[in-house]
Design a protein around this nucleic acid. Sequence first.
RNA 1: GGCGAGGUAGCUCAGUUGGUUAGAGCAUCGGAUUCAUAACCCGAAGGUCGGCAGUUCAAAUCUGCUCCUCGCUACCA
Length: 701
Amino acid sequence: MTKEYKRYMVTAALPYANGPKHIGHLAGAYIPADVYVRYLRLNNKEVVFVSGSDEHGTAIPNQALKENTTPKAIIDKYDALIRDCFHKLGMSFDIYHRTSEPIHHETSQQFFKKIYDKGLLTEETSEQYYDDDAKVFLADRYIVGTCPKCGHPNAYGDQCEKCGSTLSPSELINPRSTLSGKPPVLRPTKHWYLPLQNYEGWLKEWILDSHKEDWKTNVYGQCKSWIDAGLQPRAMTRDLDWGIKVPLPNAEGKVLYVWFDAPIGYISATRALFKELSEGKKEFATPQSTFNSPKVDDWKKYWQDGETKLVHFIGKDNIVFHCIIFPIMLHAEGEYILPDNVPANEFMNLEGDKMSTSRGWSIEMHEYLEDFPDKPDVLRYVLLTNLPETKDSEFTWKDFQAKNNNELVAIFGNFVNRALVLTQKYFDNKIPALGALTDVDQKVIADLKEFPSRIAESIENYRFREATAQLIDLARLGNKYLAETEPWKLAKTDLPRVGTILNLALQIAASLSIVCEPFLPFTSKKLKDMLNFSLENWSDAESSSLLKIGHQLGEVKLLFEKVEDEVIETQIRKLNDKKKMMEQLAQPVEPAKPEISFDDFSKMDIRIGKILKAERVEKSKKLLKLQVDTGIDTRTVMSGIAEHFSPEEVIGKQVTILVNLAPRKIMGVESQGMILMASDKDGKLRLLQPSEIVAPGSKVS
RNA sequence: GGCGAGGUAGCUCAGUUGGUUAGAGCAUCGGAUUCAUAACCCGAAGGUCGGCAGUUCAAAUCUGCUCCUCGCUACCA
């Protein structure tokens, strides 16, 4: 698919404004998006680049509770923090908007109303969890309980933060409301669903057939997996008082599902951009180009014209929403274009472990910027060279240091410095004249000419690591040229020849200043200042005569500085300290359950039994089939402990067993009773045993 | 267990319409050099391309099986 498009609409995932964002997010979506967009602008393409804070959904009020404040205060705080970090890292959004803005509410409601009026939504009443004391329906996030996957006692109804599993409240063991602490009750409620299954055929054709070649395998594979699994109706509304009101009568207390409104945020942001520009305002807009005489409706060109190329940059966790649900929404609405590509990245790990803000194993954007305020480009560069483009990648501080010292300082910075210092020394900081060209000169001119188009090809195919490597290769070309021609030696005998060499070396530096702009915008600016140069066209970078003879150069500075060992050691220590602190902070001791009577307790018949036999259950990772001598009888119990115990090590062990639990068929086998386990903070299970051996059948009371 | 992604040099990663001696950067070793932030430049070494079998004149690349890692999903305390 190499359709020529007239303009580009580029989106970067809306960061969820419930906390700070880390460098993994940058590597996943923002940096590639920014490089792509800056490159397009240098090519004089019409492009709009939007992002913004995602400020609805259940986790926002939840975070407000945690921080003992209001949802509004939460979004204001994190929107400001993230916005500031993005700015300092050079993210060149034309607008960074907020989903709490009125124009977004309006856009989302119109969108919803339109597909509702077309009869494309179904109404269904279902049983949802309700807190009788607080008199509200409980969003998934407001229900906590024991995680069925890892045993974490404070897993949320939508996700376990310990093991990262996606959950639904009904899966939680001992669910309880975070508002009242009581177990929630089920209560009927009406919601509007988007019947995704109706679009299955269309989706298959659109993704599986027409994007097999041009979408990344990880993206395509995940879409295929979802489609093949069969699509289900998905609720587009929620019972919640935080969010966008459902624009229908009798919809009190209902808001749009955050994943319905969030992607529409891209559209709202674009609307807001052109509204502000047409009114001459700049509240959120930070236009990076002129958009000649923008009109309020110009956003439509970017969202509804088939000659616009729409590209979503996201992390892999967002694939299903951007490739399946949002396109279905756009298609259902009828007037919108679809993404041409969704070049989702995988995840970036940190020093051998998964990055996680809640576990403290992360480098948050603001933390980096506090410690390295003058090095946004270094982070951009290191992340670029290690983007998780085809598989999860890894960030280490040692690698950060090596990339900075060996590549940015030693190759890029050093080349520029050599060329400039020599020119200062021999030619009074002016571009020297070009004399007769040797074969070496001709070769370097020809090589230089190749770079911009090669780098361009990599960027256009979303291969940003490759593009970045080629950028450094251009600096290598310069270093090699100087090493081959050795102008410092010729200075005593043939100054005009030295002039020719330095002229060409400086042309390479000028080319670098253009080509590096998408990757290292701050460095580009600095280098241009040093060259006293300001051209801004990608294709100019092919030229080896950008700097005219006699042109006065600016002040020579160092582009990059070395990062010393101590700095790296400090960061690694800081990381480990933070993790320890979070571990202590997050003592997940489950609050007590509601009171019960002695009668309730005495209904349970708990005994000590002995495991006689144990075997793995076929087709199950977690189950062991146990034969237990309960003293009363020998019975079969299915127990989900296979990931913690092998059959061999459990045979002969005494265990605590609930013997009068109603039998239940599990994997086709009737399980008679339940083995009691202690589940540790880390989710590890331990047997409950008497301190000394007791007779099988001994009662526990 | 099902589905998806991945397993290529010490490290981080490229590389599939199957085709000559499998690539890059870093790290290592050797050489050359001193204009430059002791940097640059040249060269060497380093891989049974997870394993087994198959298709083929030819397999990192295609097929089947298998092992390992990650994600989603199922069983479960």
